[in-house]
């Protein structure tokens, strides 16, 4: 037994750096067997309440800043997996987060290193790696997108399709001096209509009015229906990622059996910590002719992360105003109280 242990220790010592970080730890929970998995292991403290920052690398950096994030690659197959780790480009277009081809590069990927760049993950085990983003001091302002990929290639069989799988963590990195650009969006009026199959559809338009990409998700719930019926929540489907300034329709197709209404429809959309809710009373038409509903924005909630950015300047501005007022009064009193008072009396 001791000899075996010694052998194990020797093997560990001789193994390349990449393999050392591979441990026999159980892979992250929930990953099915026969899979290659990737997980983000840390997120910035300042984004603790942002669900996006828990699954993606989301940050706002100043030129010259460097950030590091631990990631975990898991292998739930019964064979050792040889996995390449790298960052490749991505873009946000047509309401979708779009991956670049292969190892396509952009500014963000050139600033990003993944260490180690390849790792051997034991069967049923996992390995950790570190993603480092170093923004050069002369970087221009703006948001960049990328993906940190874990890629596993299959051995090619003669005369066939060799398959490659890669799974990644999206990166949304904004660069600029000072406070982070705002994330915000508006939801337009609700429309009740029917699709070609006669199923009731609730539609709205969502527009990104901020300066950062948004990962949209949302749900629709119906209440106060005929006989006091309630329905939902139903998931709202829309383009998953909205670039700054982009506009996308959001629609929810409901069951044909649903009574026409009237219903109180409430749609809640969110991206990270930004949540917008609109509601209106809708009645589904008999045919596909859409009915637009006057809607009411019932709740707006922004993330705690942004609050500090608003509160601090407000406090600062109030302080400065108070000090200036104090100085102004002080000077007035010293320099010429009499003429002023005379003028006031004359008026």
């Amino acid at each position: 037994m001791r000899r075996l242990l010694l052998l194990a220790a020797l093997t560990a010592a001789l193994a390349p750096v990449g393999a050392v970080s591979a441990v026999q730890a159980p892979p992250a929970p929930g990953v099915e067997t026969g899979q290659l998995g990737i997980a983000l292991l840390e997120a910035p403290e300042s984004r603790r309440d942002d669900p996006r920052a828990r699954i993606y690398v989301v940050d706002h950096l100043e030129p010259g800043d460097t950030i590091r994030r631990q990631i975990q690659v898991s292998n739930t197959t019964d064979e050792t997996a040889s996995v390449a780790l790298y960052a490749a480009s991505a873009s946000v277009q047509d309401g979708a987060f779009t991956f670049g081809e292969g190892r396509a590069a952009n500014e963000l990927t050139r600033w990003t290193t993944v260490s180690p760049s390849s790792v051997s993950v034991p069967a049923g085990g996992s390995a950790t790696a570190q993603v480092t983003v170093a923004v050069p001091p002369d970087a221009e302002d703006g948001e960049r997108y990328g993906v940190v990929w874990a890629e596993q290639a299959a051995a090619a069989d003669a005369g066939g399709i060799s398959s490659v799988s890669r799974v990644g963590i999206r990166m949304y990195v904004s660069v600029g001096e000072g406070a982070e650009p705002v994330s915000d969006f508006t939801v337009g009026q609700l429309t009740a209509t029917r699709d070609a199959d006669g199923a009731p559809v609730v539609q709205a338009t969502v527009q990104n009015t901020g300066q950062r990409a948004l990962d949209m998700g949302g749900e629709l719930s119906l209440s106060d229906g005929p006989g006091g019926l309630k329905a939902g929540p139903f998931p709202a489907s829309l383009g998953t990622t909205l670039g700054p300034g982009d506009e996308e329709p959001v629609s929810t197709v409901l069951d044909e059996a649903l009574p026409a209404g009237p219903w109180l429809a409430r749609i809640t959309l969110r991206s990270g910590e930004v949540v917008r809710t609109v509601e209106g009373t809708i009645t589904f038409p008999d045919d596909a002719k859409p009915i637009t509903v006057r809607t009411l924005v019932v709740a707006e909630r922004d993330g705690g992360g942004d609050d500090l950015g608003v509160v601090v300047p407000t406090v600062a501005a109030t302080l400065i105003a108070l000090v200036l007022l104090f100085l102004f009064l002080l000077c007035r009193r010293r320099d010429g109280a009499e003429p002023d008072e005379t003028a006031a009396a004359a008026a």
Binding site: G37, A39, N75, G160, A179
Partner: peptide, 27 residues
């Protein structure tokens, strides 16, 4: 507010995103 943003992180315990391991197929 600005200086601390990028340095401090906390540990996540969420699960992974996974895809089937690749296989080769005869055409």
């Amino acid at each position: 507010a600005g200086a601390a943003d990028t340095t401090t992180t906390f540990t996540l315990t969420a699960g992974a995103l996974g895809v089937s391991a690749p296989v080769s197929k005869n055409l």
